[in-house]
Design a binder for these strands. Structure first.
Lengths: 228, 228, 228, 228
DNA sequence: TATGAATGAGATTTCATTCAT
DNA sequence: CATGAATGAAATCTCATTCAT
């Protein structure tokens, strides 16, 4: 029932359709290298029509970023059962990064485009209140929460500032993704990248872990294998 | 002595003049957002004149990147006395990053532009042999050498692969710089950024240090103060 | 009927409008001396708009060349009734050249621009298989066919190689046109040019005719008069 | 003797030096595709210096054209002994074209650049009195003279107008050369080109010969071999 | 709602020519 | 006499965005 509802639903579907095309293009050409014309071609819509659904090219980028981070946050939260220690939880987060990249690499890479959306985000301490950047806040919150848990249960170094470290970690992780997003697609799928990511997370893991934790527990498993 | 030398010197000066203008622009607008016209306006030269001094826009970027990395490597090598332990040496490198940023912030930020020059570098494991990217090799070598020293003398975790970790660290450090380079100038000078960098390096420090090292030694001093 | 058809027709008309402007410019300034800006000025369109209708400047040149040669080939084929001897057919071809030039001088001159499109054509024996040059192939085929006819019926010199001679003749004829195309417009309309062309064709005619043919039959009539 | 004379001679030598470099460049890149910078590089002079010796780029082209035609005229006149029939003389002229091309191909090709110098020449009947075009007049005179000789001694068709035919022939011959001049160097040396030229001259030969002449005498020998 | 058409502004690069020294 | 330096003008092409229909 309701013409209005149908209209709204159809509009939403169109938006999604356009976004999907844009995502594919970003993954193919990089976030700054694709054009509105590219989207128009891919969707078989006219450029003018795109502007009926999105205010600007930037608005499209922002929404894509938003979607990607939401997806990531959801994905992680599903896997964060309350009985995990803080350290285990951190590993779940990092591990999710790796496995999401390994599984659905493409979609995930889109979390890396925030630089194209709003470069003043993570790095700017006071910048969290800005415009299109808020999309990163849930990711930040997620990480900060996990870090706090670890500080509380003693598995993470009590000296770290959860919020600051969360920002740094997120920044580093998305930086890597950002770089990956600029690589040509064929390079992007290489094992090398996955190893590079794992290496980075291992470093960060040891960086945040409590000194009391046995070093041998601070290795993320190779991607695509479930954590034991 | 004589006319020829003066000519050469003046030519060199004008190159530098143009480069300086370009640097300022990069710092203001980001490495990919400035145009030859911008440089022409800033220098009050014609676009054609710019091409007398540089083959292409890319050549300008490459030279700037080169200069910045060279300067960094020199700066660090001056401070790396042989009697330092590997861990101390790592701290010198990271510390140099911090103090260089604090001292000559702007120039240093330019080490972050390699993404604009050749985006396939660090992240691509086999990519070290490519084109304009070689300018990063000295930085990589420097870090790898220091890590090896630390593995040898037991102050760093023997499990790390020096070359791989060097690549990761360099990647992360330049990522941060790259992001900073995109910030508006006024944000860039904030203490927040410096703290962010220090935090990141502290994480990395603990990531690479041997588990036997006392955690309290793994803090970089706040920027602007010389390490004793 | 219908909007779509009208759109298509209008689009075609605007293409033609642009092409016409380009033709005029070529005729005024020469095929290599006109610029996209010139076309934009002439059509009162923006340069960007031109690129909506043609992929590149070269594409415009190619299309103009194509049109001109197609028109010539059609024109000649209409006049080549099967009962003509080979010699008569050759005279029809040459005569068409002359009368087309006399009648629709400007359009016809455009057959001479192939040099600007692809300079390696006719003169390069193996070059017939190349890129944008194929537009000349129908002209070549036409002439070769006619020559063969004449060799078969004894009105042309059996010693000539039809394909080779066709290439040479086409080359010479378009060379002349090419030169004419570079003349300032006022000179181009002179009777002198037409005489020059006739003279050339008369030479060629005697060059290919069988020695048995009476020399007095080997004169093309003055232009603008129909051959009976 | 005297300083003035030496100055003049040296100036002349410099001119020649520059011209030689320009010729080489034309042959490499085509008459319109080379730049003053190219000449400057080749001569190791500055662009400004070039303007001390030549008023403009066009002046250089004109002089090169002049030299080339002069050389051709001289070359032919040396071989035109008075006892030759007009027909034989024509064959000497055409043959010289062929052998000059075969021998010193490069220098000779330069006769084809007149289009770049002054496109209004040959084809414009009244154009002989113009500016830089006069360089072609000696060639025209040469051919006309030869044709007249043949008309007088009965070896050429009395119906032809020597001056008009001379202009046509010259036009055709230089057209071919002009096209050749635009070919990449490697193509230019092919036998195909020489054959093409020979074919054209054979056509012209039969076009101008008296009908009484035996057709079998109307073949130019293959290049590089002396006429029997 | 949808779009075809149009465009202003801008990107990089080239080149013949001039002029102060 | 020679030239280093400079440049105005031009060339091709791209792109996000607007608007009348």
């Amino acid at each position: 029932m309701g013409i209005v509802e149908r209209r709204i639903r159809e509009k939403e579907e169109r938006r999604k359709y356009i976004l999907d095309a844009a995502k594919t293009l970003i993954l193919e050409k990089g976030a700054s290298a694709f054009s509105m014309q590219d989207i128009a071609d891919a969707t078989e819509l006219s450029k003018a029509t795109l502007y009926l659904y999105f205010q600007s090219k930037e608005a499209i980028l922002e929404e894509i970023f938003h979607d990607a981070t939401d997806y990531f946050v959801e994905y992680v939260e599903e896997r964060l059962s309350p009985e995990l220690t803080g350290l285990e939880a951190v590993m779940v987060v990092w591990g999710s990064y790796l496995s999401l990249y390994a599984e659905s690499g493409d979609d995930f890479v889109l979390t890396g485009i925030w630089r194209a959306v709003n470069p003043t985000f993570v790095v700017a301490p006071g910048g969290e209140g800005g415009g299109g950047q808020n999309a990163a806040v849930p990711m930040l919150d997620l990480i900060a929460k996990v870090l706090e848990r670890g500080i509380a249960d003693g598995t993470l170094d009590p000296a770290i500032d959860p919020r600051g470290v969360a920002r740094t970690c997120l920044f580093l992780a998305t930086s890597l993704i950002d770089s990956v997003a600029r690589l040509p697609r064929e390079l992007r799928d290489s094992n090398g990248i996955r190893e590079e990511m794992r290496l980075m997370f291992n470093l960060l893991l040891r960086g945040v872990a409590s000194p009391t934790v046995d070093r041998s527990d601070l290795y993320l498993p190779a991607a695509k294998k479930d954590k034991r």
